[in-house]
Simulated scan of single mutants.
Amino acid sequence: MFTGIVEELGTVAEVTDQGDAIRLTVEANTVLEGTGLGDSISVNGCCLTVADLGEGRWTADLMQETLDKTSLRGVTAGDRVNLERAVTVDKRLGGHIVQGHVDGVGEIVSRSPSEHWDVVEVSLPAHLSRYLVDKGSITVDGVSLTVVEARETSFTVSLIPETLARTTLGSRRVGDLVNLEADVIAKHVEKLLGGYLPTPPTPAHPLQNDDKDNS
């Protein structure tokens, strides 16, 4: 479990192709403090398990499912990545509840810089639009953000100087892909309410209609 508050910008040191998986080695400092084998670290919003530790670096294995469903499939050596350790119960929840389970990949559609912040529009997979509301929460590349405007196929966020300086969102350009995670509370509410909502009638099979007409 994470909060979407990026602790550190790491640098991808190595990407080892293993056919249906990759081994990802990241250079870091802060997130290695108190971290052991088997611990979880969020990389651009994707929860990864520490498989190896070295001096100033750590390694994780990314299976095919992760490569298929996240933007990490395109990561290369030298790329900067957002890092966050799993939250502990004695820490303040500075962002919102983030699982590190990517729901979909969006694309930076536009950036509108101003003197003190940037307004960024991100495309949204159709199946996620129902979870977004104005002033609700969304995780973009592991960063907890507030939705400014929720649209049918995209949404906008305002990035303050702190976010621009301390996360990869400061350097993301139009066309770049980003990992998205919707608010898990919204998904649970939808599941719970599903049992109380009417079920749409099932259309009759064409052959069944023909049989009735001919009887």
Rank of each mutant, 00 (worst) to 15 (best):
V105P: 05
A182G: 02
A150E: 02
E7C: 08
E121G: 02
K212Q: 10
E152H: 12
G106I: 04
G56M: 11
K69A: 13
S123N: 11
D17A: 12
N179C: 03
D20Q: 14
G104R: 06
T168W: 03
P200N: 12
V50P: 02
N44K: 02
R85E: 03
D20R: 14
V157L: 10
E8Y: 02
L9A: 03
K69M: 12
E65L: 12
V105S: 04
R166E: 10
N44Q: 12
A13L: 13
T11V: 15
M63P: 02
E181P: 08
D79V: 08
E84A: 05
T156K: 03
A60N: 03
E181L: 09
T153I: 02
T199A: 13
H205Q: 13
S42F: 00
Y131F: 15
G45R: 07
I108Q: 07
P201W: 04
G45M: 06
D103V: 09
S154Q: 08
R130A: 07
N214Q: 11
V140I: 14
V87M: 15
L180V: 06
S137L: 04
L159N: 11
R166P: 00
G56P: 06
R111N: 05
K187D: 01
E33A: 14
L159H: 10
L93A: 08
K187T: 02
R23C: 07
D141M: 05
V184P: 06
V6A: 08
S71P: 03
I108M: 08
V50E: 05
D17Y: 04
S137E: 06
D211F: 15
V119C: 10
E65Y: 11
G4H: 04
Q208P: 00
E190F: 06
I160D: 07
S158K: 03
T153M: 04
W58E: 07
M1S: 13
T199Q: 15
L145M: 11
K135I: 00
V184L: 13
Q18P: 00
P113Q: 08
N214H: 12
E7H: 07
D141E: 12
Q64L: 15
V119I: 14
R130Y: 00
D17G: 03
L124Q: 10
E33F: 05
S40N: 04
T153R: 15
R73W: 08
V122K: 09
T167V: 09
L83Y: 01
G45Y: 02
T66F: 05
V147D: 10
R23P: 02
L32T: 08
I41Y: 04
S112I: 11
N214K: 14
T167I: 10
L62P: 10
V189M: 12
Q18F: 00
E84P: 09
N209C: 09
E152K: 15
L132G: 03
L132Y: 06
I97P: 01
P198A: 10
V178W: 06
S144W: 01
V105D: 03
L169N: 04
V184M: 15
Q208R: 09
I138A: 06
G195R: 13
T146I: 08
